[in-house]
Design a protein around this nucleic acid. Structure first.
Length: 214
DNA sequence: CCCGTGATTTAT
DNA sequence: TAAATCACGGGG
């Protein structure tokens, strides 16, 4: 007998993602990110974690956003597309970062996924993250998250609703109460002037898997 | 605190 | 074509 609060189809509809990036950022907290890996012998492994830290990137006006000033390049093209798709970029010569595209085509906003609380496939994540000494280090940063889950540019533009390699499952129907969400400035965007101080980073208060702000 | 590392962007 | 940048992570 399923519990009354269980969600029948855990994948949220497109409308869930077609919202402004601040609303989407808050709504993503506590939801589940799922990565399916296929093994050599044709089996599928599920890696998953609860989203515990995110940042909103507000588009052409936001000096910290890759689309600031209307920049539209091969790298950030997916940010210009419809909501509910992945924007994966490569930086510092070795790290990938995963964003969830918000709003609709032509409105280039996104939510950066910064940290997960791993829930499934933890041993596989540990294999992919040999430098992580504790479970709270496995995915406590945007580059670590992608490394743990095996996410790279090959998943740029992946459909987070209908995809079979990477998607989001709704754990709770509603956005978490404000009291459970911590807010602060985004990490690593000191170059962005006044935009560096805007409170656009959101995290689960007290959760040990949240990254340490720099 | 410093440094790796290389795709991508921006300046010449 | 060349130089600078970078939504980071790991080690001391």
């Amino acid at each position: 007998m399923p519990s009354l609060t269980a969600i029948a189809n855990p994948r949220p509809p497109r409308a869930f993602f077609r919202r402004d990036p601040i609303t989407l950022a808050r709504a993503l907290l506590g939801q589940r990110l799922v990565r399916a890996l296929s093994t050599d012998d044709g089996r599928t492994i599920r890696l998953a974690g609860l989203i515990v830290e995110v940042e909103a990137y507000l588009g052409v006006e936001d000096r910290a956003a890759h689309t600031f000033g209307g920049r539209r390049t091969a790298r950030n093209e997916s940010m210009w597309g419809d909501g509910g798709y992945a924007y994966v970029y490569f930086t510092y010569g070795m790290h990938h970062c995963l964003n969830v595209v918000a709003e609709t085509a032509g409105e280039p906003t996104a939510v950066l996924l910064r940290a997960l609380e791993p829930t499934e496939g933890i041993e596989v994540m540990q294999d992919q993250r040999p430098a992580a000494r504790r479970e709270t280090d496995l995915a406590s940063g945007p580059g670590k998250l992608c490394r743990a889950l095996g996410i790279d540019r090959g998943l740029d533009r992946a459909d987070l609703i209908g995809g079979e390699a990477l998607w989001i499952e709704r754990v709770q129907k509603n956005t978490l109460p404000r009291a459970r969400i911590g807010v602060g400035p985004r990490v690593g965007v000191g170059y962005a002037g006044p935009w560096a101080e805007r409170p656009l980073r959101f995290f689960l208060r007290g959760n040990p898997h949240v990254s340490r702000a720099r």
